[in-house]
Design a protein around this nucleic acid. Structure first.
Length: 645
RNA sequence: GCCGGCGUAGCUCAGCGGCAGAGCAACUGAUUCGUAAUCAGUAGGCCAGGGGUUCAAGUCCCCUCGCCGGCUCCA
């Protein structure tokens, strides 16, 4: 029968399996790299008979995204087999492929220890070296239930109970059997480049009310080299870890005495934040925002009125002052609403854009704290835009543009997500619909791609989240734009329209960097601590060769400082090599070396971070170079900040 | 919050029932040196905190705090 493999036709007899079919066209070598094949939408095992209706098929290679997923899924099965061998009473949970690897969840009576991972990995190597076949069976649902009941696999039984198909597929290799949709690689020998990476607890089906199983994570790749590359990438990520670099570079640290999730900023870290905050302040003024300030503590009654008490109360800190309840703000909106309501507003006044670098406190569960990325006290570059419904879209578009300008400044790529109504929420269905469509049409007007995150909105309205991608392709949520029809309602916010009647405004909650703390953490990892010159807490350090050069070094330092450059001097009685090394380790953008020759010529010898030697420059030239370096990122447009203002 | 692991000098780590150690950093002195570590000396510890077992506890057990990897939740 004639069928197509890619663009080539071949006569493939009825009853051939996929491998035989592909073998008609592919070289031996290529066939060996295939792990499965695709027929239409369906992915099939290589040793599965080719369905007679299948006219076109194509091979799936191990190094393709789909091929890797299959390989990793198979690695998960091999791991499960190894665990069952070593711990026969272990029960199976689920074990899918994930980004870069796989995991499998188990219920193991005696518990697993990190040492067990080595034994399991060893057992896996034994399994892969036997190169046993992955075999597919289809059985009736009843039969499947009987099989897993016999094996006392209660979690598999639970999965089966929810299935609606009458037949399900099972896969086995050697004595191991699993409920599985497939496909799998032909045999266990296909899985060679793998490594078990970690051990963790995970709730059965992600539900914190269900039992906690033990999850083993692993990584698997088509080739050893890719595995090595991946492990190197992990090391690189570790090298950039802001929790390590922060204290090392004197930016911030956490103290057990001060409490979990409460960062303390050292002078250089506070300086770095101040630069970001200064940029934000100026940029917001330029875009028509007005600065405002609210208190940290507001009366509990107000939080009840806003709905925060009922919907967000478990994340809030409450206290009592002279018999009156107060809540520490987890968001900045309430004061902004009071400011709006302090006067009669007309349609001519809108939009009003209130901006505040607002410090908020949220009670995060202890287990989720993570360096600066997840803390209990943080500062938002927050704003509330109160506008007429007809202004909504334009305002959202302006915010998206603002986000875009800022992301370009730092060189971040980003992805957008639209989050819809969560279970715990306030407001009418109509309001939610209107809000969602406003956000959606703004995204579309801006020509942006976006994903949908169902049920992930704020309790008062839907939102657009901006997830930025750092230098290691990891995503972080920073900016968010939330559309809110319900708080204006609750607080009876109004404006007088052209018609003299009172109307209801819409409120947008939005942040650009999000939390300054988190953004700083992302920046540290993005730049690996080597900040661009405009952000670097110390931009240049003057290094002397002997004590005789100290007076000139001081002169250079003072000259640069007088023009706003953050310069310092290393006048210690140390060898130049030592001073260079230290300046490099502290990731100072420029080392300015002064010796006899430079004093004679009134120059400095410039060495950039990383080792590039820029030769001798006069003081004026040095200033020029530093200044243009500082301004470089702003040439991309959008943001007009100058660090020398 | 839950599961598992960890906490020894400022940092990186050794010690795993029997006298608390090393390297780097710090300090003092010598050295005055040209692009990633000059040499010598000195000091530094309630072994996270509390309780227990033991003749004896960084070491074994329990509780608390904090950190790490996940889960659940989020900027």
């Amino acid at each position: 029968m004639e069928r197509y493999i890619g663009s080539q036709s071949a006569d493939i007899p009825e009853g051939s399996d996929c491998a035989q079919a592909l073998g008609q066209i592919l070289s031996r070598k290529k066939l060996k790299r295939a792990v499965a094949c695709r027929c239409g939408e369906e992915l099939l095992d290589l040793n599965q008979p080719l369905p007679s209706e299948c006219r076109e098929l194509e091979p799936i290679y191990a190094d393709s995204p789909e091929g890797l997923e299959i390989l990793r899924h198979s690695a998960g099965h091999i791991m499960a087999q190894a665990v069952k061998r070593l711990f026969p009473s272990a029960r199976l949970g689920t074990g899918p492929a994930i980004e870069n690897g796989f995991y499998y969840d188990f219920e193991v009576e005696q518990g697993l220890t990190p040492e067990d991972l080595e034994r399991i990995e060893e057992e896996m190597r034994a399994i892969t070296s036997r190169d046993a076949l992955f075999q597919r069976f289809e059985v009736g649902l009843r039969e499947a239930q009987r099989i897993f009941r016999e094996r006392d696999e209660q979690y598999k039984l639970e999965l089966l109970e929810e299935m609606e198909e009458d037949r399900v597929s099972l896969y086995s290799q050697e004595d191991f059997l699993d409920l599985c949709r497939g496909p799998h690689v032909p045999s266990t020998g296909y899985v060679q480049a793998f490594k078990l990476t970690s051990l963790a607890g995970a709730y059965w089906r992600g539900d914190e009310n269900r039992p906690m199983l033990q999850r083993i994570y692993g990584t698997a790749w088509a080739e050893e080299k890719q595995l090595k590359d991946y492990l190197r990438r992990l090391e690189e990520a570790q090298r950039r870890d802001h929790r390590k670099l922060g204290p090392q570079l004197g930016l911030f640290d956490f103290f057990e005495e001060a409490g979990a999730g409460m960062p303390i900023f050292y002078p250089k870290g506070a300086l770095l934040r101040s630069i970001l905050e200064d940029l934000e302040f100026k940029e917001h003024l330029r875009r028509g925002y007005e600065p405002v300030r609210g208190p940290q503590l507001l009366r509990t009654d107000l939080w009840k009125k806003s709905g925060h008490y009922d919907n967000y109360g478990e994340n809030m800190y409450f206290t009592e002052i002279e018999g009156q309840g107060f809540g520490l703000k987890p968001m900045n909106c309430l004061a902004h609403i009071l400011i709006y309501k302090s006067d009669v507003r007309s349609y001519r006044h809108l939009p009003l854009r209130y901006f505040e670098l607002g410090k908020v406190n949220r009670h995060e569960k202890s287990g989720v704290l993570h360096g600066l990325m997840r803390v209990r006290e943080f500062t938002q570059d927050d704003a509330h835009i109160i506008c007429r419904p007809d202004q909504l879209q334009e305002e959202i578009v302006a915010i998206l543009r603002f986000v875009q300008d800022v992301m370009h400044l730092f060189g971040f790529d980003y992805a957008m997500e639209l989050s819809t109504r969560p279970e715990k929420s306030i407001g009418s269905d109509q309001d939610w619909e209107d809000a969602i469509s406003a956000l959606e049409s703004a995204l579309q007007a801006h020509g942006l791609d976006y994903g949908i995150n169902p049920g992930d909105g704020a309790f008062y309205g839907p939102k657009i989240d901006v997830k930025l991608k750092d230098a290691l392709d990891r995503f972080w949520q920073c900016a968010t734009i939330q559309c809110d029809f319900t708080l204006p309602e609750r607080f009876d916010m109004t404006y007088v329209g052209q018609d003299g009647e009172r109307h209801r405004p819409v409120m947008l909650h939005r942040v650009i960097l999000g939390a300054i703390e988190r953004f700083l953490g992302v920046l540290i990892e993005h730049y690996a601590g080597a900040f661009p010159t405009w952000l670097a807490p110390v931009q240049a350090r003057v290094l002397t060769i002997t004590d005789d050069h100290a007076p000139f070094a001081r002169e250079v330092q003072e000259y640069l400082q007088s023009y706003g450059i953050r310069a310092e001097s290393d006048l210690r009685n140390e060898k130049l090599g030592q001073k260079i090394r230290q300046a490099q380790m502290e990731k100072i953008p420029y080392a300015l070396v002064v010796g006899d020759q430079e004093i004679r010529d009134r120059t400095v010898n410039v060495r950039a971070l990383g080792g590039d030697k820029l030769g001798s420059l006069t003081l004026a030239e040095t200033l020029d170079m530093l200044s243009s370096d500082c301004h470089e990122p702003f040439k991309r447009g959008g943001i007009t900040y100058s660090c020398f203002d």
